[in-house]
Amino acid sequence: MNPATRTVTSADGTAIGYDRTGEGPALVLVDGAFCSRSFGPMPELAPLLAPNFTVYNYDRRGRGQSGDTQPYAAEREIDDLEALIDAAGAPVHLFGISSGAVLAMRATAALPGKVRSLAVYEPPLLVDRSRPAPPEDYRKQVDDLIAAGRNGNVVSFFMTKVVAAPAFVPYVLRLTPAWPKLKAVAPTLRYDFAVLGDAFRGQGLPEEFRKVLGAIDVPTLVADGGKSPAWMHNGVQAVADAIPHPRRTTLPGQTHQVKPALLAPALINFFRAESRHGTESRDGAES
């Protein structure tokens, strides 16, 4: 393990690696599929947030410098977040992107009092038939590919059958430096699917997840990109409609691969406002 890596221990004994940068109120970042604190949007986003917050950027279990204790359950990832939040000093601001947004929402609902405010960017929920749904057995197909050690095929299947990217995308990716990194963490795609549950079948919000959203009792920024496809907008709007205290925004010109330089100002404005509101509320309670 990198000697500079900080760690916390989750409830099942799993070591969770993280970085801490900046000053100010604690802000925890939650990655989506295939990403880690050294790969994806967070390495660029964290320094942009650090002048305003103490930023905690961590490796989800099975990635980077974090352990992968078995058997896996989505609840263990909530335990991981709770351990990190406790180390940061609850309550914290929480931001999640893609499947990490779904995990952040589940954690906020499950850990009352430990999240001050929440922001999510494009939780990938397929709630209608505005695009073809993945195969009914898509999770089993991925499990079988992983069991056979065909990590590259896992990435290709995800891109074409789940994300519905054009067929040439995996071939292009194979020629980039990102390909080995994607293959290395491909087995953790099962974890993202477990976090999503049944929310990617094109049949509306599952009742289980609707209850999760209804239990999120903190201000929540729900964001998407102006150039993202209709199915993504529809899923994001379904989330906003089900959360008690939403703040809805769309970042012009952005897609699911949002530019951190354009995302950061929206997060800073939202979390700074909620930090001030929290301070004013405490001062009012004490006077």
Rank of each mutant, 00 (worst) to 15 (best):
A33C: 09
P187Y: 04
T188H: 06
A11Y: 02
L94C: 09
E286Y: 00
E286F: 01
P124C: 08
R276M: 06
V258Y: 08
Q203C: 04
P47Q: 12
L125S: 07
D144Q: 14
L213V: 00
P206W: 02
D80E: 12
G278E: 10
D80R: 10
E82A: 15
M1G: 13
A15N: 06
S10Q: 08
A104E: 09
G202C: 06
G17N: 07
R210V: 01
H245L: 12
P260N: 10
A50L: 05
K161W: 01
L48E: 11
E82I: 01
K161E: 15
A194M: 06
P43T: 12
Q65C: 02
D86Q: 14
V239E: 08
D143Q: 14
P43D: 11
G226V: 09
V222L: 04
P91S: 13
S117T: 07
V239H: 04
F95H: 15
Y121W: 12
I146Q: 08
A119E: 12
L189E: 08
C35N: 13
T7G: 00
S130K: 02
M1D: 11
L173D: 04
G40E: 11
A11M: 02
A101K: 06
E44D: 15
G89D: 12
T255A: 06
V185W: 11
K259D: 15
P43N: 10
A88N: 12
Q254K: 08
L48C: 02
V162T: 09
G197W: 02
A133G: 10
E77S: 09
L27P: 02
V102H: 04
P132G: 06
T255V: 12
P260M: 09
L111D: 09
A261R: 14
V28D: 10
G235R: 03
G235E: 09
G89C: 08
S98R: 11
A164E: 05
H233N: 07
L173H: 03
A133L: 04
A264L: 05
V127Y: 01
V218I: 08
L48R: 15
Y171W: 12
D79F: 11
H93E: 09
G89A: 11
Q141L: 12
C35I: 04
G100K: 09
E23Y: 05
A186P: 03
G278S: 10
G96R: 05
F34G: 03
F158L: 03
G204H: 01
K114W: 11
P170F: 04
A186N: 07
A230G: 00
D59P: 01
R116M: 10
K161R: 15
G278W: 01
F168I: 13
A107E: 13
R129I: 01
K181M: 14
G24W: 05
R37L: 06
R276K: 13
S130R: 05
T14M: 05
M232P: 00
Q65D: 15
R116H: 14
L263C: 03
A83I: 12
G96M: 07
F95L: 03
T188D: 10
V120F: 07
G149E: 09
A238V: 03
K211P: 00
D31I: 04
P91K: 13
T249E: 13
V169K: 02
A186Q: 08
D217P: 01
N57P: 00
A285E: 01
G22E: 12
A11L: 10
T21L: 14
Q203V: 03
T54E: 14
R131A: 15
F209K: 00
G197Q: 09
G225I: 11
A107C: 04
R60W: 06
R76M: 05
T220Y: 03
S130I: 11
D143T: 15
